[in-house]
């Protein structure tokens, strides 16, 4: 077996992080995307810009601010401490929070596009059939937006698997807590252990290709973003 126990632990941790993050993002991203798709409010621009920030910001900026704000002297850190949760850097929960923010646009934007593509008419039709807005959402919008959800889920998951800079800055490289695959690869390279680095890197390359291949073949509309 070319992979060590530490490698396997990193793989397992990464999959766990990506799954939890994707689940949270789909729950959180749905109302945000729905609101962005329907609102005529002045706030649409600013909120959309905030959601898209991680596309533009270097991970070092995100990592640096998360480290400072989630630390014991930062506002988020003081809040989590007052709840008795301690501070978030160097914990799995901290990585989840960071990843949710970091992968937010990859989930919200496909959902928003899907909702916008549905338009008003199916909802008006549902309303004439006396469906409540909630009922209409679950029985009309969700099925129609399925390709959008597939794209959002796959991109959110894959982008979290590919996260590196933010984790490096707030993770502290703790086995089974914050040492994800990308950090493990980095360690192998730093330690000049290139054989191990190749096994994990090659695996990541294959994974990324297969995920995108599946996305583009199963869901051709996913390309339209």
């Amino acid at each position: 077996m070319p992979l060590t126990d530490a490698d396997l632990a990193a793989i397992w941790l990464t999959l766990k992080l990506a799954s939890v993050t994707t689940l949270l993002l789909l729950l959180l991203g749905t109302p945000i995307a729905w609101w962005l798709a329907r609102t005529r409010s002045w706030w649409k621009g600013p909120v959309g810009a905030v959601v898209a920030l991680p596309l533009v910001l270097p991970p070092t900026v995100i990592g640096f601010y998360l480290l400072v704000t989630m630390g014991p002297n930062g506002p988020v850190g003081q809040f989590t401490q007052s709840l008795g949760l301690g501070v978030l850097p160097f914990t799995f929960a901290g990585l989840v929070v960071a990843s949710v923010f970091y992968s937010l646009p990859f989930v919200v934007q496909p959902l928003q596009n899907a909702f916008e593509a549905i338009g008003e008419r199916p909802l008006e039709a549902a309303a004439t059939l006396r469906a409540s807005p909630l009922d209409a959402f679950f029985s009309v919008v969700l099925p129609l937006a399925r390709p959008g959800y597939l794209t959002a889920g796959v991109l959110g998951f894959a982008h979290t698997v590919g996260e590196f800079g933010v984790v490096l800055m707030i993770g502290g490289n703790i086995p089974e807590q914050t040492r994800v695959i990308s950090v493990q690869i980095y360690d192998h390279v730093e330690a000049m252990d290139y054989a191990q680095a190749h096994w994990l890197s090659g695996g990541m390359l294959l994974f990324a290709f297969l995920v995108l291949l599946a996305l583009y073949t199963l869901n051709p509309t996913g390309r339209r973003k």
Binding site: L67, V68, M70, P72, N73, G74, V87, P89, F90, G172
Partner: peptide, 9 residues
């Protein structure tokens, strides 16, 4: 140094 100076460690 970062971890200590920000109080995280």
């Amino acid at each position: 140094w970062q971890f200590v100076s920000t109080g995280n460690a």
